Simulated assay, not measured.
Amino acid sequence: MSDTYYRLFKHVLLGPALKGVYQPWVEGEEHIPASGGAILASNHLSFSDSVFLPVVIERKVVFLGKEEYFTGKGVKGYATKAFMEGVGTIPVHRGGGRASEAALRTGLQVVQGGELLGIYPEGTRSPDGRLYRGKTGVARLAIESGAPVIPVAMIDTHIAQPIGQKVPKRHPIGVRIGAPIDLSDFAGRQEDRAALREATDRIMAAIAELSGQEYVDRDAALVKRELAKDQPSETGE
């Protein structure tokens, strides 16, 4: 995706409309460096997080998104691909093992290339508005790259666009950005599991302080699967 297309999408096609309708606010943008690679580590409440975050800050933000967004067929598939490219998303194959390593390498290239990488440490959207345990990939990426980690809190995007709702309703939406997190004491320890967990927990604590969310020390994806099992079937069984 070219920077020209990104700027056109953000400043002409999408940004003005979103700002006019939703009037999102932002606090703490001064914590984002004017240049150079950095990691924006955010809570994840709604699909629209990846839309409103790049709209309200000046610098381009690159996200890693599941490749299915880019492989759809027909008009809907083309529109989805164009939209994801427009908001700065790079396709990656999700999953464990080699897929996780490939995603990490892609993120490392983004940061080392001097760009802002937007990442959701929880790995998936919160099922209930609370903040869940972060996956350690964000810490490994930060330690290996040496890039600053800047905590971000998306505010009320899950109210404007709950899971399953295609278009956000009009509701105040905000983005709160904190000071960079000091992870210098973990330098060179990107293969140390205990260090990665401690660094990740430090990142999540900073996000929780910004967002005011209740923290749950569990994997969000696991909680989603448990909730899905508890849902009654269409036959009432």
Rank of each mutant, 00 (worst) to 15 (best):
E144I: 00
A153F: 07
Y132T: 06
A142H: 03
E85C: 08
D156P: 00
D185P: 00
P121H: 02
H158G: 02
A102R: 15
S100R: 14
I155M: 14
R125S: 06
R125E: 08
I163M: 11
P172H: 03
S126K: 03
M154I: 14
D128N: 13
G113T: 11
L117T: 10
M84A: 13
Y132E: 08
Q112P: 09
G146D: 04
P151Q: 08
A142K: 02
G107L: 12
G88H: 04
A160W: 07
G97V: 12
I163P: 00
I177H: 09
I90L: 15
V87L: 13
Q190N: 11
T106K: 15
R133D: 01
L108H: 10
M154F: 06
I173S: 03
S126H: 02
G188W: 01
R105L: 14
E101M: 14
H171P: 00
R98H: 14
H171C: 01
A147Y: 07
A139K: 00
I159V: 15
A103H: 11
D182M: 09
L117S: 10
T89E: 07
D156H: 12
G146K: 03
G137T: 03
A99H: 15
P127E: 03
R94Q: 12
V87R: 02
G129Q: 07
G129A: 04
G107R: 10
Q165M: 13
G107I: 12
G178F: 01
A153C: 05
P127G: 07
R176I: 07
G134Q: 07
V152R: 07
G96R: 13
R125A: 09
F83D: 01
P91Q: 11
M84C: 14
P172F: 02
V111E: 10
L104C: 11
P121S: 08
I173L: 13
G137A: 10
L141V: 02
A102P: 04
R130M: 07
P91K: 08
G146I: 05
Q165G: 01
L104S: 11
V111I: 15
I177Q: 08
D182P: 13
G134T: 06
A139Y: 00
I119V: 15
L104N: 11
A147F: 06
R94N: 12
G174S: 11
D182W: 08
S184V: 05
G174H: 10
L183K: 08
D156R: 10
I159Y: 00
T136C: 02
I173Q: 07
S126F: 00
I181F: 07
G118N: 04
P91L: 12
G178D: 08
G137W: 03
P168Q: 05
R105Q: 14
P180R: 01
R125D: 07
S145C: 09
G164K: 09
